[in-house]
Simulated scan of single mutants.
Amino acid sequence: MSVMFGFLCSRQLLALKHRRTHLGFLQQNGFFIVKSFTSVGLPESNQKPDEEKKHSFAMSYLINSCGLPAKSAILASQRVLFQSPERPDSVLNLFKENGFSNDQISHIVRKHPPILLSDLEKTLLPKIELLRSIGVSSSDVITILTSNPFLFKSSIKKYLIPCYDFLKSVLLVDEKVLKIFKRSSRFFLSNVTNTIAPNIALLRQLGAPPSTISFLAFSLRRYVGWKTCNILTSNSFVS
């Protein structure tokens, strides 16, 4: 409850900072140069179909503004279509304002192109602020979200906070929860009720003390999300 309260308070304060235009960002950084097709002024008779124009614009933007190689841009443009730079510009601006480097932004966009069309205040900012509110350093926030940008689309109420609270109750020490966030962030993309909780319940039924459960959950975290039948039959647990 305290995590949610502190998080919501910080949201109200930090949201004010970002309720302004993000235009002009690309002009200040040589790496990000937008070449908008809207300024080219193609003859009316040569206009492409709407879908093809969106694809061409997106591919150009991915190369010129996000630093993707041509081959990666072609693949990425099949997953995200747009013909206006406003929303993508604001997303790139948000990342830069929060300390992400050009290479990190390029990596995020390459792994998850639809992120360019994300809502800043509903999708992106809440994840950054949540990580900070639970004690993750700014540099680690960047590392976590760069390595696993799919966390941006994970629900805070359904997955991130419940998973954090559950792991905190099991691992007992905050530092261990943060280490799992940094090393095994895919945990926070799962529904703990259906994955982690049954295995912890099994350990308790077998009479394992809290300290042992905490040790196993942290040391063998890549197995904790398995189905209980897989854990019991896995050769990895045979000495």
Rank of each mutant, 00 (worst) to 15 (best):
S90K: 05
S72Q: 08
L125W: 07
S155G: 08
P85Y: 00
L125F: 11
S84A: 05
A76N: 06
A73Q: 06
S90G: 03
L120E: 15
R110T: 15
L125R: 10
L124Q: 01
S106E: 10
L124A: 01
L131V: 04
P149I: 02
L151K: 06
S77A: 14
S137E: 13
H107V: 03
I63V: 15
S65Y: 03
K111Y: 13
R79V: 02
E97D: 13
I115K: 04
S147N: 15
S155Y: 04
V109N: 13
F100R: 04
S90M: 02
I142A: 04
R79Y: 07
S118P: 12
D89K: 01
L125E: 13
A70Q: 14
E97N: 11
V141P: 10
S106M: 02
L120T: 13
S101A: 12
V141C: 15
K96M: 09
K111G: 00
V109W: 07
I105W: 05
V91H: 06
S72T: 08
I108Y: 13
L92N: 06
P114E: 01
L124G: 05
S65D: 10
L94T: 15
I115C: 09
P149C: 01
S90T: 08
K96G: 13
G67C: 08
S154K: 13
S77R: 02
V141W: 08
